[in-house]
Computed example of a mutant assay.
Amino acid sequence: MSRYHEMKFRAVTSFQRRIGNPLVRQLPRQTILETTGRTSGLPRRTPVGGRRVGNEFWLVSEYGEKSQYVRNIQADPQVRVRIKGRWHAGTAHLVPQDDARARLRTLPRLNSATVRAVGTNLLTVRVDLTG
């Protein structure tokens, strides 16, 4: 990762962790991905933008395997997703062979624009919903 991308990553993730995510998590209709912390074992809730297609939920991580929630998925793929205020259990899968930029064109516009603007290593994630 270039020095510019590293600085951008640190600035954006610091803002998200301290300001953005705590505020957005409070919105009742915000889509939330809940993973299990790979070190703490505690639930970790991250606001995400994605779309449900049948029994699958698709999203794109802006920082790929550097994203904390992606690292948590690698340790334990059992997740929950809150969609329109309702929780769904599922199993998350990283899909590196998917064209993440093309996938963003199928997801909510505002979030996709933000991911394209700040992302440095896009990675598609699919959650197979079971409940």
Rank of each mutant, 00 (worst) to 15 (best):
N121Y: 03
Q26W: 02
R18W: 11
T13A: 05
K8G: 08
Q97L: 02
S67A: 15
E62N: 09
L94N: 04
T91D: 02
L23E: 02
L33I: 07
R51L: 11
N111Y: 12
R18A: 10
V95H: 01
Q97T: 07
N121W: 06
L107Q: 13
I83S: 01
R103I: 02
H5V: 09
L42A: 15
L42D: 15
S112F: 06
P77T: 13
R86Q: 10
W87M: 07
T124L: 08
T130V: 03
T114C: 06
V79H: 02
L27S: 12
A89V: 00
R45A: 14
E6N: 09
R80M: 07
Q97A: 12
R109Y: 02
S61T: 13
I73G: 05
A117S: 11
A117P: 03
R18D: 11
S14C: 12
R103Q: 10
S40N: 04
I19F: 07
T120G: 15
V81Q: 04
S40G: 03
F15A: 11
A89W: 00
R116K: 08
A113M: 09
G119P: 09
R38N: 14
G41S: 03
P47W: 05
R10P: 06
R109M: 02
V48E: 13
I19P: 00
A11M: 11
V118R: 01
L42I: 08
G41R: 01
V60W: 01
N121H: 11
R101S: 10
N111L: 07
